[in-house]
Simulated scan of single mutants.
Amino acid sequence: MTDTAFSSPETPETLHEDRLWRDDGWTARVIKNEDDDGWAVEMIKDGEAEPALVGPWTMGRNKKDPKPLDTSAFNTLVKTASEVLRRHEQQLRAQLHKSVTVEAPTGDGELDITLDIIPDEDDPYALLTALDSLGEQLAQVKVAASFKLNKASAEAWVENEFRRPG
C-alpha cells in the first residue's frame, strides 16, 4: 500500500484488518519498529501526511507477530492521538498569541493588548491590537513577527497613541 493512501483528501472507506484500521477519520497502522525487533503503531488523521502519534505495539501470543488491532485498542489510540494534536494546537496558539493588560491612559479601566503572529513562510508578521474593557478594538497595527510584547512595550505603545512601534 502506498503512502498516498493515507494522505488522500477524500474520506477513506472504513477498514478493519489485523494491522490496518481506518475509521472515524483516523488510520491506525501497525508497522515494524525501526529501533528494535518489536512493532509500533502509527495514528494518522485523515488528510494529514504525518502521523499524529507513533508508539510501541504489543507482541502477539507467539512473541513474533504483532497483536491484531481491535475496536478497544483503536478507540484508545484515537483518544490518545487526538489529545496529542490538541496539546500541539494549544502550544502553537500560545507561541503565536500573546496578551498583556495595561491601565487605560484615561484612567477608566484596563486595556488588553494582544499580539497575534502570522507565520507566513514568505513574510511573517504580527498584529498588535488594543481592546477596551468591553472587548471593542481601539487600534491595530502591523509589526514585525519578532516584536516582543510585554507590559513595558504595551504601555509605550498606548502612551504613543497607538502609533506603529519603530
Rank of each mutant, 00 (worst) to 15 (best):
S8M: 10
E10L: 08
E10K: 15
T11P: 08
T14W: 04
T14K: 06
T14Q: 13
L15H: 11
L15P: 04
L15F: 11
H16I: 10
H16S: 14
E17G: 01
R19K: 14
L20I: 01
D23H: 15
D23Y: 15
G25N: 05
W26Q: 07
R29I: 03
V30L: 07
N33Y: 06
N33Q: 04
N33I: 02
D36G: 05
D36T: 06
G38Y: 01
G38W: 00
W39T: 11
A40C: 10
M43H: 10
K45G: 00
G47W: 09
G47A: 05
G47D: 04
E48V: 09
E48W: 13
A49I: 11
A49N: 05
E50S: 05
E50Q: 09
E50I: 01
E50L: 03
P51N: 04
P51I: 01
A52C: 02
L53A: 05
V54W: 10
V54E: 02
G55C: 15
G55A: 12
T58R: 15
M59I: 03
M59N: 12
M59L: 13
G60S: 13
G60V: 10
G60W: 06
G60Q: 09
R61I: 14
N62P: 03
K64A: 15
D65G: 10
D65C: 12
P66L: 08
P66N: 13
P68R: 02
P68M: 08
L69W: 02
L69D: 04
D70S: 08
D70Y: 13
S72V: 06
A73N: 02
F74I: 00
N75V: 00
N75E: 06
N75H: 12
T76C: 07
L77W: 05
V78I: 14
V78D: 06
K79N: 06
K79H: 10
T80Q: 04
T80H: 02
T80R: 14
T80D: 01
S82D: 07
S82E: 03
S82Y: 02
E83M: 13
V84K: 14
V84Q: 11
R86Q: 04
R86V: 00
H88K: 10
H88P: 00
H88R: 10
E89L: 13
E89V: 11
Q91D: 00
Q91A: 13
Q91P: 04
L92M: 06
L92S: 00
R93W: 13
A94T: 02
A94K: 15
Q95P: 01
Q95V: 08
H97N: 14
H97I: 00
S99K: 15
V100Y: 10
T101Q: 06
T101A: 03
V102N: 03
E103H: 08
E103Q: 11
A104G: 01
P105A: 09
P105N: 08
G107W: 14
D108L: 06
D108K: 15
G109A: 03
